[in-house]
Design a protein around this nucleic acid. Structure first.
Lengths: 249, 249
DNA sequence: CGCAGAATTGATACATCTCAAGCTGGGTGG
DNA sequence: CCACCCAGCTTGAGATGTATCAATTCTGCG
């Protein structure tokens, strides 16, 4: 149970919280916030550390404050599929169920704002805004999961990689409050293997396709992680998506 | 916009509704039910008819009362991926958003219990039980979508078909309030092509794998639709899943 | 009975996987 | 301070599962 390394982290005042406006608490009024503040505690994980294993009891639910975590499913013979990427403000855990259905792993150093499950559930019953916001967030995640099903089931390797790079670029831009237009530079948070697990490919195929995109001038690489997109629209053309449709992930 | 054929259907009293205990209204108390009853209306679609197209405005949300519908996404060049299968008691539509992100199509004759969006949203704000139940259902759907991502990304064609047949068998059993054990007989609601769209395969591959399962004695066919599973556990062994784990779809 | 849509079957092509070497860059210990 | 080491990545050659294209053959329905 819980092989995680948890470092103490000091609580931040909700009013100063960087994810205040997007997380599960976004709609809360001051008194609801005060109640949440009472039951919250922070928890940190180092890059690479597991947060919970599939099947474990998880006695809390949480919001990602900073860092990135992944949700993965693993088959008996070791085949792995990533089924979600958790960014700041995303929510982990499921009120009304004790155990978790997938492995949760910290990809970068990670800080989470945790609520013990019992008090959180009581709060959900007695005040409306947390549940409403959680429903909204869950519906968004469901849309994202379904968009991902199209990618996994029907896209080619090149389309998959292009889509992933485009999505990471957009998320990065939104975290930095910028727009992805013209030339855009950012860091990949994932290794080739993690990308492969996300895309339903092997790491070799990921590597080859990245090389191909580089040769075609659609991306530029500085080291393994730092990516420059010289022309975002040109990259979008490679994703197979309806242009400018969709992906709000 | 809305090329659907809608036949009038007479409303059933909520108290006698076959999906009363599983649908979005499952938790409602009598007065809440009365309010829902006021704003509900039934709508029927013939097998094969579209319910809504991706991008259309959808001015209502609805529960499937009887029949089966599919959610599919389509790429510009025609590649299609099914992203959901709607069975009786499943919910369609998204409070808080006007347009739909995927095509919804009636696979069999279909009856839906519809609520105009505006009144439904107001009801969700003023009474807690609808929103709570909807959150629970959405979380279940998210789990199912993620399970499906593993299938699409990592399973072989044979594992995919076996998984699909096992899931349909289980759902069929649960609708008929029976258990899937020993010898089990049921009808496939989907054509080979629809199965292919669900599984991220071509219809030829689906056909070949079904033939292979038949040759191996894992299933028996009577015509194209009627399936007998002589030994359910033997079929489960072919799915690649942790035995008796998971799938509550 | 006959026909059209659905399904099967076959031959071949090709995208991706698999297995196997190397490469590269950043960190560590001698 | 350099040599080594190792994880992460790239590249290559060959195997393989699934797609594609093309006939047939079923099956259920009018």
């Amino acid at each position: 149970m819980a092989v995680h390394q948890d470092l103490r982290a000091t609580n931040v005042d909700c009013a100063d919280c960087p994810i205040r406006h997007r997380a599960v608490c976004a709609r809360c009024e001051t008194e609801e916030l005060a109640r949440l503040e009472q039951i919250k505690y922070y928890r940190s994980f180092q890059a690479g550390q597991p947060v919970v294993w599939s099947g474990d009891r998880m006695e809390y639910v949480a919001s990602v404050v900073s860092g990135i975590a992944t949700l993965t499913q693993t088959m008996e013979d070791g085949r792995r599929q990533m089924v979600g990427l958790l960014l700041p403000s995303d929510f982990v855990g499921r009120p009304g169920r004790d155990s978790v259905a997938y492995d949760v792993t910290a990809v970068t150093d990670l800080v989470m704002c945790c609520f013990r499950k019992k008090p959180f559930e009581e709060l959900m019953l007695s005040t409306p805004h947390v549940g409403q916001r959680l429903l909204e967030m869950t519906l968004d995640e469901l849309d994202a999961a379904r968009e991902w099903m199209l990618l996994l089931g029907r896209k080619t390797a090149r389309e998959k990689i292009s889509s992933l790079i485009a999505i990471i670029a957009r998320r990065d831009a939104s975290l930095r409050q910028r727009k992805v237009s013209g030339r855009f530079v950012f860091d990949l948070p994932l290794t080739r293997e993690e990308m492969a697990d996300y895309l339903g490919l092997t790491l070799e195929t990921v590597s080859r396709q990245i090389t191909a995109l580089k040769k075609d001038g659609l991306i530029e690489l500085e080291g393994n992680r730092n990516v420059t997109i010289p022309d975002f629209d040109a990259l979008l053309d490679q994703t197979g998506d309806d242009n400018d449709g969709g992906f709000l992930v």
